[in-house]
């Protein structure tokens, strides 16, 4: 792979950065879930880059990514279920409006 390693690493970092930035600024809960998925994607990308550049014959890299994906899927489904409940009870999906704990 002539491609120097910090190219895919950089991309992963930027992807994570964008995910983080979106999660902090947007207020729609469903969209925040999307950003979480983006961040996990960044993580996967880094994981795969290290596997490919340094330990290509070692199978733990892909397996770990597999587990990250499984967790991402489970988390997404539970997150969406919770969001639907919030919509059902509070009528809105805007995160900053759901502030029951303000007291």
């Amino acid at each position: 792979m002539e491609l120097p390693i910090y190219f895919p690493l950089g991309l992963g970092a930027l992807l994570f950065g964008i995910g983080l930035w979106g999660a902090l600024t947007r207020t729609n809960a469903v969209r925040i879930l999307m950003f979480i998925e983006l961040m996990l994607n960044g993580v996967n990308l880094n994981l795969m880059t290290f596997t490919r550049y340094y330990y290509p014959e070692n199978a733990t890299g892909p397996i770990l990514t597999l587990f990250v994906m499984t967790v991402a899927a489970a988390e997404a489904s539970i997150g969406l279920a919770i969001i639907l409940q919030i919509v059902r009870n509070r009528g809105t999906v805007e995160v900053d409006k759901v502030d029951l704990l303000k007291g």
Binding site: E37, R52, A72, A76
Partner: peptide, 26 residues
């Protein structure tokens, strides 16, 4: 990009899980 890193299995899984299941769920 995964395909570029010669990880077909993870590339296919990525499409299957992320692009297929999670996007549809969202």
């Amino acid at each position: 990009i995964f395909l570029m890193l010669q990880q077909e299995f993870i590339a296919a899984l990525q499409v299957l899980i992320y692009a297929g299941a999670i996007t549809t769920m969202i």
